[in-house]
Amino acid sequence: MNIFRLIGDLSHLLAIIILLRKIWKSRSCAGISGKSQLLFAIVYTSRYLDLLTVYVSMYNTLMKLVFIAASYATCYLIYLKFKATYDHNHDTFRIEFLLVPAVILALLINHDFMALEILWTFSIYLESVAILPQLFMVSKTGEAESITSHYLFALGSYRGLYILNWIYRYAMEDHYDLIAIVAGVVQTVLYCDFFYLYITKVLRGKKLQLPA
């Protein structure tokens, strides 16, 4: 564990809490892409199946369980409890365009052709693009609530911090995983446009509004 990974994980945790809290407090999931949340639930489920086979640490186990539970809770709030507030007319990204390539790529480019390993690889590829339905929704409506912007910023920062963690691990432990690194860079790049808007608008007290 190094400081970049710890802050990255905490940022990830913070993002999940911000989102759950926002939906719960406002009793509404307006502006939130259910499809992105569904993809995240698939990501955590397929990646953390190793909970059943290997024990890393109490921290590792707890965080995995929290991520899985929170992603299911978020989907439950969006698709069942606060279904009436779900803005599905604006959540029109075709997720099969992300799911199918992630499956094919995981079958073609992986470290080992074994079920758990392929599922892990699939989850890494899918995570890198899972936010696209949410970003698509923001661009379609042309705006996002501040709290949704904070959520996106915390979630985007997490993988960016992981890049620093991978650089650190490569330098200090001679450890690296190209699949995670390339996917993590792609994931972070997808947020760049949003980061720019967040820093120039939201942090200055303005609403995140895209030019018409």
Partner: peptide, 10 residues
């Protein structure tokens, strides 16, 4: 090995 190594990340 690399398999167990990367599983410590989330």
């Amino acid at each position: 090995g690399k398999y167990s190594n990367k599983k410590d990340e989330l």
